[in-house]
Design a protein around this nucleic acid. Structure first.
Lengths: 120, 120
DNA sequence: TATAGCACTATACTAAAGTATAGTAAATTG
DNA sequence: CAATTTACTATACTTTAGTATAGTGCTATA
């Protein structure tokens, strides 16, 4: 078993600090991750639904990003073995919590924009 | 004058929501941004100090990233017109607040790691 | 006078991320 | 029975991000 660190211990430990931030950044960075998460934020969606929500995404990119987000444990892919097959994507429990990070980002974004405007 | 939105209004408005998140993500993403911010987090540093903190960064990358972070208003570049010139980099007031976002990222990273481990 | 430190810049390159376009296989609709 | 929908995959390409290596102009030190 690996040692479990408390939040405070990790904050004072650069290596674990960086690992966790990178995990989170990996989920959010790239051109399409945020739009995809936004699309499934308020309920499960099908491939083409997401495609319609994000008009400029190619099916190749959508497929690729959905796969990675599923692999990361952020999205859950549900296959209904009906005829024809129906595939639905939704946020995992953990995926839903990413909104807390997003909210902090909005907060920082707003204050930063204000700060930058005041200087110029 | 542009209309100012409250945090709650922006949360319910996808466009402003996304803009602010992207601003924040732009400050944090890329291979070297986080290490650089980490290096100046506890006080101002000189070019070569940062380089020593991040052994694998090339001067080209460090110079490029420092410039962009300064342009974004996250870092402040201070030139001391001594002979020879001395240049110091430090986080702006707004830049210091990015730690709040980082803390949330650590929190999410830790809980996500646990969640993923429990499933496997 | 030679060597090293500081704060970079320039040029050329490779690797990763993203785009464009077409195609597949099964079923459904007119 | 031809066209459309769903959920993708394949191939080739371009763009962006990052690397490698060398060099600049200044000063300080041995």
């Amino acid at each position: 078993m690996e040692k479990q660190y408390s939040l405070n211990e990790i904050k004072s430990c650069p290596v674990e600090y960086i690992l966790n931030i990178n995990d989170t950044l990996n989920v959010l960075s790239g051109k399409w991750r945020l739009p995809i998460i936004g699309s499934v934020l308020y309920g499960k969606k099908r491939f083409t639904d997401i495609q319609r929500n994000i008009p400029k995404i190619s099916p190749r990119m959508l497929s690729k990003e959905l796969k990675e987000l599923e692999l990361n444990g952020v999205l859950v892919r549900k296959i209904h073995h009906t005829i024809p097959v129906l595939v639905e994507y939704e946020l995992s429990e953990s995926g839903k919590l990413i909104t807390e990070v997003l909210d902090k980002m909005i907060e920082w974004g707003i204050q930063h924009r204000k700060a930058v405007l005041q200087k110029s």
